[in-house]
Design a protein around this nucleic acid. Structure first.
Lengths: 74, 74
DNA sequence: ATGCATTTGTTCGTATGTATG
DNA sequence: GCATACATACGAACAAATGCA
């Protein structure tokens, strides 16, 4: 059953909108991968894929062992 | 075809058997995560995963900073 | 009592292998 | 073959409890 929009894209868009709406401020942490995993029911690597998209778009940055944060405008 | 038994499952089973065999009595501590890590050569989070399985199954309980203990029969 | 190092469990992001359409 | 998605496994940072100087 070919789904219209891939899960990782839906999740990336949802987070991007939350950031745009100011739900998370500059350098604020977004929910952890595990939290997102439990919220969405997706697999770890799929959630990571979504974050990876946001990182490529310059919206967030990640620090291993710490978390993923909103990239402040530079 | 992925029909190998995962490392975390093997470890969980091994500990479950030790408990069933009476090697660790009620409220006795099982080996620490670091000890298990060194014994098995696995990563921290993988050992943690094994313990997490045992906790879900109600076999053990964990206390941060103290250890993981055998859950007495209710 | 205070401070600090050590030990223990917890949570973080990341990488790899595999299956499916 | 490629994109999508899953389970597994990894290394590092975090946080709570303990003991000792």
């Amino acid at each position: 059953m070919r789904s219209q929009v891939p899960s990782y894209r839906q999740l990336a868009d949802r987070i991007a909108e939350a950031i745009a709406a100011g739900e998370y401020g500059p350098d604020d942490p977004i929910p952890s991968l595990r939290t997102l995993q439990q919220e969405t029911g997706l697999a770890m690597a799929t959630v990571q894929h979504a974050i990876s998209v946001l990182r490529t778009e310059g919206l967030v940055y990640s620090v291993s062992g710490r978390g993923t944060f909103v990239r402040p405008p530079g």
